[in-house]
Write a protein that binds this DNA or RNA. Structure first.
Length: 284
DNA sequence: GTCCAGGATCGGA
DNA sequence: TCCGATCATGGA
């Protein structure tokens, strides 16, 4: 597929596969070693060999204006790893393990909506729901015909598009009790009640308060949306897995919470758990 | 059949 | 303020 853009990754430990399959977003699929999907209206396939990254379907302009920021390639994660480990030495294993995972700069609406769907749900099922929403209500990317899975070639639906979907339809698509949340959420956002650019730059507690005013958005979903969709790296989402880790590995709390890169540390912990689930299985 | 998942809401103490 | 029940759904 043309065009394609090749670059050398500065942060050599970066892993595009680990980053895109780390539970931050629910859209990318892997085919023959390529990560395939649509963001910002463009369908691309990403391929990494060592520190070489090829983005099939993107030209230099796309790279500079979209993918470089989306993958957070200009940030020094070695330095962040050092900073968070210094603040919390018990994190050293996780940080070393997961330093290849960057925090994605997703579109705010997609992150917010995806994590409303994620509540009390599991990742495969979340991915299925998101995929169906994209296929049915998301616009086709310009080169969507190249997509290996049809839904991968569709953008995440806009708030306007979802505001026209009935609650009953959301249920039929497997959203369960979250259907009512999606209905109200997309209507309020489509009505312009939320200025995402304002939330992006607002004082963090004000940003939290605004998101928490949405039905279906509690503390965890708000933190995820802020971290993955609004670029607020200090946010620290606590799900059942992180809670278990706090009860075993980080007894007594951690100085990380509230610090500048708490969200990155959280992602390192999550990644560590994800790769060693047997160490964190639910206690009976 | 039971338990669980990147939880939030609600009513009652 | 805090706590338990409840909320759909599909996989283990």
């Amino acid at each position: 597929m043309e065009p394609k853009y090749c670059t050398t990754i500065r942060h050599k430990k970066f892993s595009v596969a680990d980053t895109l399959t780390s539970g931050q977003c629910f859209r990318w699929t892997e085919h023959e070693g390529r990560l395939c999907g649509t963001a910002f209206g463009r369908y691309v396939e990403m391929e990494q060999k060592g520190d070489g990254l090829t983005i099939h379907g993107a030209d230099q302009s796309d790279y500079e204006t979209i993918w470089r920021q989306y993958l957070d390639l200009d940030r020094d994660y070695d330095e962040i790893s050092r900073i968070v480990t210094e603040k919390e030495p018990r994190l050293a294993d996780s940080a070393e393990y997961a330093v290849g995972v960057h925090i994605l700069a997703q579109e705010p609406w997609e992150a917010l909506c995806s994590f409303v769907i994620s509540q009390n749900n599991n990742i495969p099922r979340i991915r299925g729901i998101v995929s169906r929403l994209c296929l049915l209500y998301g616009e086709s990317a310009a080169n969507a015909q190249l997509a290996r899975e049809e839904a991968d070639g569709h953008a995440f639906p806009t708030p306007q598009a979802l505001s026209e979907v009935s609650e009953e339809t959301f249920k039929q698509l497997g959203c369960g009790y979250r259907a009512a949340y999606l209905t109200e959420l997309s209507r309020r956002v489509a009505d312009g009640e939320f200025d995402f650019d304002y939330i992006k730059n607002a004082p963090i507690d004000e940003a939290r308060k605004m998101l928490l005013s949405l039905k279906g958005v509690g503390p965890k979903v708000a933190e995820c949306a802020l971290l993955y969709g609004f670029g607020r790296l200090e946010c620290f989402p606590v799900d059942v897995w992180i809670r278990r880790a706090m009860e075993t590995e980080f007894v007594g709390g951690t100085a990380l919470i509230g610090s500048e890169y708490a969200g990155v540390a959280q992602q390192y912990i999550f990644e560590y758990i994800r790769r060693h689930p047997e160490r964190f299985e639910k206690k009976s």
